[in-house]
Amino acid sequence: MSTNRAVRIHGKNDIRIENLPIPEPQENWVQLRMSSVGLCRTDVHLFDEGRVDHIVIDKPITIGHEISGTVSKLGSGVTSLAVGDRVAVDPCRACGDCHQCCRGRPNICRQLHCCGVLHADGGFATYMVTPAKTCYKLPDHVSLEEGAMMEPLSVGVNGVRRAGMVDGDVVVVIGAGPIGLFAMQVAKALGASRVMMVGKSMLKTNSFKALLEHDFSYTDINPKRLELALQMGVDQVLKPTVGLSDPKAASEELKAALGDEADLCIECSGAPGVVDLAIHACRPGGKVLMLGFGDMAMNVHLGMAAVREIDVIGSFANLHNYPECIRLVSEGKIDVRSAITHRLPLENVMEGINLVRSGESVKVVINCGAC
C-alpha cells in the first residue's frame, strides 16, 4: 500500500478519512502497521467540540490513542524491537527534563505530547510512527485487540496505585463504562476484599444548578453494563433510585446496599454530583479517586471531606504501568476482551462515534487493517 489511510479531525464536527504519505521512523523510533485501536469518549469530545477542556484542535490531527500494532520498520538505533513484534503503545510522550519529569511524574509533564490527542498523530491510520520506548511487546497469547485495551486499563492501574488501596479495602466504583469496569477489576486483582459497582445515568446536565432543579435521576441506567460488571467479576451491583440533589440520602442508599462504608470510592462517571456522593459514602479516613472527568468546575462539599479526613485524589493517564497491565491480562487476572462490544473497520469510525455517544456500546474497537 503506497498511502496511509488516516482518520483526521480538523475541528468541531469536521472529521475526514484522508490519504497521507506513509511516515518514516526517525532515530530511535519505529514504524507500526496499525491493527486494533480503541475508540475513547475523548475522541468523541474532540469531534463534537473540537476540544477537550484546554486541549483545542488548532490543526488537523489523526486521532486514536488506545493503540496496538505490528512493528513494520525500525529507525536507526533501535535494538529493543524487531520487525514483526506485536506491541501495545503508550500514547504519552514526556519531555524528560521538566520539574515533573525529573521528579518521576512524567504523566503530568508540562510539555506532554499524547498521540491522537495533543501535539502528535495517533493510531486511526494504516501506519504510524512512535518512539521505540513507548512500545511494549505482547506475549504470544495476548491478542492485538487486548493490546489496544492496555491504555484504558493503565488508567485504572495508575489510579488505584495512586489512591494507595491496600489489601482488604472495601471499594465502590461509580460508573460502569470501560474505565469503571477496568478499575473494578484492578481493585480486585490488587487485593480489595469487596467491590461494588454503582450504575450511573446516561442523562447529562450542563450545570450543578440544572442538577438541583431537575433532581438528576438514575432511571435510564444501562442494565447491560451492570450485567457485564457481574460477568467480569464484581461482587455486587447497585442501580440507585435516590437522586443526586441530596447526595447524603443517595449515599445512605449506597451504604445500606453495601452493608458498610467504603474505604475507597472510585468515581468513573464524570456526572454532576457524584463526587459529593462518593465523599458521603466513604468512612472517615477514606479516599475518593477521580478517574471520570465531567465539568472542570464543580460544586463539591470539600469541607465535609476535610473534617472527616477523606482524601480526594486526581489521577491522569498512566505512570509506567504498561508492563503491569500486560502481566495482569497475560496471567488472566483481568479480562479486557469482554468490554469490547463493537468492532468496526476504519471507514466506519463515524458509526463508532455515534455508538459511544449514544451509550449503546461499552468499548468500540476500530480495525485499522493489520492482524
Rank of each mutant, 00 (worst) to 15 (best):
V186Q: 05
A187E: 01
A187C: 10
A187I: 08
K188P: 04
A189M: 05
A189L: 12
A189V: 05
A189Y: 10
G191S: 04
G191C: 04
G191F: 07
G191V: 09
A192W: 01
S193G: 12
R194W: 07
R194L: 01
V195Y: 10
M196C: 00
M196W: 01
M196K: 04
M196G: 09
M197V: 11
G199N: 07
G199V: 07
G199E: 06
K200N: 06
K200S: 10
S201M: 01
S201F: 00
M202Y: 03
M202S: 04
M202R: 15
L203Q: 13
L203W: 02
L203T: 14
L203A: 11
K204N: 07
K204V: 04
K204L: 05
K204T: 08
T205S: 04
T205C: 08
N206S: 09
N206A: 10
N206R: 07
N206H: 05
S207Y: 03
S207I: 02
F208Q: 03
F208M: 13
F208G: 02
K209Q: 15
K209W: 09
K209L: 13
A210H: 12
A210G: 09
A210I: 05
A210Y: 06
L211C: 07
L211N: 06
L211I: 08
L211K: 00
L211Q: 03
L212P: 00
L212C: 05
L212S: 00
L212E: 02
L212W: 00
E213K: 09
E213C: 06
E213Y: 04
E213F: 02
H214R: 14
H214N: 12
D215P: 04
D215H: 14
F216A: 12
F216G: 13
F216E: 12
S217K: 00
Y218W: 12
Y218V: 06
T219H: 14
T219Q: 15
T219E: 15
T219Y: 13
D220V: 05
D220F: 01
D220P: 03
